[in-house]
Simulated assay, not measured.
Amino acid sequence: MNGSPPSSAASSNGSIVFVVDDDASIRDALSNLFRSAGIQVQTFASTAEFLQHPRAESASCLVLDVRLQGNSGLEFQSLLAQSNTNIPIIFITGHGDIEMSVKAMKAGAVDFLVKPFREQALLDAVSAALQADVKRRESEQQSSHLHADYQTLTAREKEVMGLAVKGLMNKQIAGQMNLSEVTVKIHRGHAMKKMHAKSFADLVRMAESLGVGLDR
């Protein structure tokens, strides 16, 4: 089976597509399609088999048949959401309807393709899904680093940072905390350095992401 080359996200090292379909011929066809396009793929005959597989450490997405033995694809989508398993899902089905597709998309599916679908449509959907997963992982990593940096601040530095991002001047912070203005400047400088903030505006954006100093 032939397809156009995938985007850089789809073909980047480590990115992988998981396929769950109880039809062996469909699994083989999709596996051949993705491999011919340079995309890593792993197939599963059931959702239970997929759940036994370790989660991918790199960008991934799930191509999921709507009608499966046991839990349906839509039920499995809900199960993954309840367990906070974040993976973009592309549904494929030979028996789709508008109500089903709307339900899947409202629940966060990347696409809903009815068989027979164009190979390029599936490759494009997979490319979009992998790009979305790359961005999610990068965002989560940045958030993790941000929280880690914040935990290196002392209690005083956290308090000064919280008051500063509310818009209080050093003199006001000093009065509220019963400190000298020089001490406040030192704590503020330490907070900036530990948070790796390039500017005060940068520190404010970090505080917003952390939910610090927002209780005005």
Rank of each mutant, 00 (worst) to 15 (best):
G73C: 04
A125P: 01
M1L: 06
G94E: 08
E119P: 00
A197Y: 13
F50P: 02
Q176H: 02
P116Y: 07
A45P: 03
G189I: 04
V134N: 03
R137C: 03
G167R: 14
V134F: 10
I26C: 06
F112Y: 08
G162V: 11
D111L: 14
A174G: 05
R118G: 15
A125K: 12
T154C: 08
P54V: 04
N84A: 15
D21C: 15
S144H: 05
A45F: 04
A191E: 03
R137A: 09
I92K: 11
H147W: 09
P6K: 13
T154A: 14
M169W: 13
M100P: 01
S12E: 08
S15M: 11
Q42M: 12
S25T: 09
A24D: 08
G70I: 12
T154K: 14
T93P: 04
D202P: 05
F44I: 14
A37E: 12
Q151D: 06
L179H: 00
Q131I: 13
S60V: 08
G96V: 14
L179K: 00
R205M: 14
A191Y: 01
K103A: 05
N86C: 09
P6S: 07
V184F: 01
N2H: 01
A207S: 15
M177N: 02
S209D: 05
Q176A: 11
G211H: 05
L163V: 06
N2R: 03
M169E: 10
D97F: 00
K194I: 14
A121N: 09
A81E: 13
A59W: 07
A104L: 03
R118V: 09
Q69C: 09
L130A: 12
Q77C: 09
E140G: 09
M206V: 14
G213A: 06
A37G: 04
R35D: 12
V63K: 10
L130T: 06
E49L: 07
N178E: 15
L146W: 02
Q42L: 14
A132N: 04
V184K: 03
V204W: 05
R216E: 15
E57L: 04
A164T: 08
N178H: 04
K106V: 11
F117Q: 08
G211D: 05
Q131W: 05
E181I: 00
S15T: 07
M192E: 01
H53G: 13
V41N: 08
G70A: 12
V20S: 02
M169H: 09
Q141K: 10
G167L: 15
I16D: 02
M161I: 01
P6L: 14
G162Q: 12
I98V: 10
H53L: 06
V63P: 01
H196Y: 06
M105I: 03
S15R: 05
A129P: 01
D97I: 00
N71C: 13
